[in-house]
């Protein structure tokens, strides 16, 4: 048993190290071979700018927070083999709910409770949107892959319409396709600290749900065997509904934070897709373990943020980061194949 646990940790570590080594090695070759740029300088820029400079670190937080929140929700989904790929739409819906409530309230009143209320609106918006694929799956056996994917487009076009030239939220004084801005009093106070605090609280709540409640226990049973869950009388439908709401809610919260702490308005360029898809990567990278999510989120945030610095300073395009993500993702899956060989090598059998 002890050796088994140790073996699992060691073999996973080896797989991850190999995946990253391959991505870095191949990437270095591409940068050097095609662009003629010193790859080690470019790649080290990612680290030095995104983690080791004060301003860089602050902007890394702006990526880390939504990625972690979305990754956290998706991890729960994937545990139960609920293939939600609609975090983009759920994040956008959170943003729409938050912005809508904010615009509604600016006409009438202001109270100090407005920011928490707007955050809750984001959660509600995302949760409601996340519930749709869950309900479709439970009631009509619609594949959540298709429904959640398609709902992304619905959300994107709804948002685009809201801030379009003739849209109801369009700010006529702006040349861009964007809504009226938020009043300053609606901004998230102490933005960086608040962002991190909210993220940590979310991780604690989800970890608690996962480890200490019957909801989490049932999730583990489902993750291990659907048949065992059925046999034990676990109501899978109810679990799917809760999972849809929780993951949607987390994505919606990410959307609300994006509006309240960063964008301060809703623009047609609001990048739900970006975070939604990278969130899938974050969830997998953390092997759907709630506690590891923040590290995966940090890693992804660093890469993206550092990628922009790298582009600006060394001329290697930020798209390099997506190449990197893709190679790591595929390698981790492919390198699972070497685990049995490792087992023999380490003489576990």
């Amino acid at each position: 048993m002890q050796t088994e646990r140790l073996y699992n940790i060691v073999s996973n570590l080896i797989v991850y190290i190999l995946a990253f080594a391959l991505a870095i090695g191949l990437g270095a070759l591409i940068i050097w071979g095609f662009l003629g740029i010193n790859p080690f300088y470019s790649l080290s820029l990612i680290m030095t700018t995104a983690l080791l400079s004060y301003n860089g670190l602050l902007s890394t937080v702006l990526y880390l927070v939504p990625l972690t929140l979305i990754g956290l929700g998706l991890a729960i989904c994937y545990k139960a083999r609920f293939w939600n790929i609609g975090a983009d739409g759920q994040m956008i819906f959170g943003a729409i709910f938050t912005m809508g409530m904010a615009l509604f309230m600016t006409r009438y009143t202001y109270s100090s409770l407005v920011v928490p209320l707007l955050l809750v609106m984001g959660i509600i918006g995302g949760a409601a949107y996340g519930l749709i694929p869950a309900i479709l799956k439970v009631k009509f056996k619609v594949s959540e892959v298709l429904s959640s994917l398609m709902l992304n487009f619905v959300a994107i076009y709804l948002m685009t319409w809201l801030v379009d030239v003739t849209g109801p939220w369009k700010d006529p004084s702006s040349a861009e396709l964007q809504s009226y801005p938020l009043p300053h009093t609606y901004f998230l106070p102490y933005e960086y600290i608040s962002l991190l605090a909210i993220t940590v609280v979310a991780i604690i709540i989800i970890s608690y749900l996962y480890h200490r409640t019957s909801f989490g226990y049932k999730l583990k049973v489902m993750s291990s065997s659907f048949q065992a869950a059925d046999y034990a009388g676990i109501n899978k439908e109810r679990q799917f509904i809760m999972i849809g709401a929780i993951s949607g809610g987390l994505a919606g919260l990410a959307g609300a934070l994006q509006i309240l702490a960063i964008d301060h308005l809703l623009a047609s360029t609001f990048d739900g897709i970006f975070f939604g898809y990278l969130g899938i990567f974050v969830a997998w990278l953390a092997a759907t373990n709630p506690v590891y999510i923040i590290f995966a989120g940090l890693l992804m945030g660093t890469l993206i943020n550092g990628g922009y610095f790298m582009q600006a300073i060394s001329g290697v395009s930020v798209e390099f980061v997506y190449y990197f993500e893709g190679v790591v993702f595929i390698s981790i899956i492919v390198f699972q194949l070497i685990k049995p060989k490792l087992r023999r090598l380490l003489k576990i059998d």
Binding site: S214, Y217, K220, S224, S225, Q227, A228, Y231, A232, G233
Partner: peptide, 23 residues
Amino acid sequence: DRLTVGLAPDLSVKDNLILKDID
């Protein structure tokens, strides 16, 4: 089928023994 219906294979002996007590 013991290992995929009667038991959740990845869960511990403890978690499997309490499978029907959880609620």
